[in-house]
Amino acid sequence: MILSTARLTLRLLTVDDWPLFFALHNNSVVIKKCFDKPSEAQIRAKFNERLKPWRPASNHPLCLVISEKSSGKQVGVTGFTASQLPDIQEVGYLLLPEFYGRGYATESLQAFLTWARGEFNIQMVKAVVSAGNRGSEKVLEKCGFKLVRVEPLAYEIAGVLLDDHHFLLDCTDNS
Rank of each mutant, 00 (worst) to 15 (best):
E98Y: 01
S83E: 06
V91I: 15
V125A: 12
D87K: 12
P86K: 11
Q89M: 10
G101T: 05
E107G: 01
A105N: 08
E119Q: 13
L96F: 09
F120W: 14
G101C: 06
P97A: 11
V91H: 04
G92N: 08
L85S: 11
K126W: 09
Q123M: 13
R102N: 15
A127T: 05
Y100Q: 06
F99W: 04
Q84S: 14
R117P: 02
G103I: 03
R102I: 09
I88N: 08
A82M: 07
G103H: 07
R117V: 15
A127R: 08
Y100S: 12
T114V: 09
Q123H: 14
V128E: 12
P97W: 07
L96S: 10
I88C: 14
Y93M: 01
Y100T: 09
F120E: 08
E90L: 05
A82G: 15
S108R: 00
A111F: 00
N121H: 13
Q123R: 15
Q84M: 13
M124G: 04
A111R: 00
F112V: 06
L96V: 11
F120R: 06
T106F: 04
F112P: 01
P86W: 11
E107Q: 06
L113E: 10
T106C: 03
K126V: 06
Y104G: 00
E98H: 02
A116V: 05
G92M: 08
T106L: 05
W115N: 04
Q110T: 09
Y104N: 03
G118Y: 10
R102M: 14
L95P: 00
E107S: 03
I88Q: 14
I122E: 08
L96G: 06
A116R: 02
E107V: 02
A127I: 03
A105C: 11
W115F: 12
G101F: 01
V125P: 10
G101V: 02
G103A: 07
G103M: 08
P97K: 12
I88Y: 11
F99V: 00
S108M: 01
G118Q: 15
L85F: 15
E107W: 06
T114W: 07
L113I: 15
I88F: 12
F112A: 08
V128D: 05
G103K: 07
G103T: 07
I122P: 03
L94Q: 10
I122D: 06
L96W: 05
T114N: 14
P86I: 11
Q123D: 11
A82F: 08
L109M: 14
L95T: 06
Y104E: 03
L94A: 04
F112S: 01
F120Q: 10
L85I: 14
A82C: 12
Y93G: 00
I122N: 07
E119N: 04
N121P: 00
Y100N: 13
L95S: 04
W115E: 02
V91F: 03
L94V: 08
Q110S: 12
E90K: 11
A116D: 11
L96D: 05
Y100P: 02
S83N: 10
L96Y: 07
K126H: 13
A111I: 03
E119M: 04
K126L: 11
E107Y: 04
I88L: 13
T114S: 13
T114C: 10
E90V: 11
A105W: 07
E119I: 00
Q84V: 12
G101I: 02
T106R: 07
M124V: 11
V91M: 08
P86V: 13
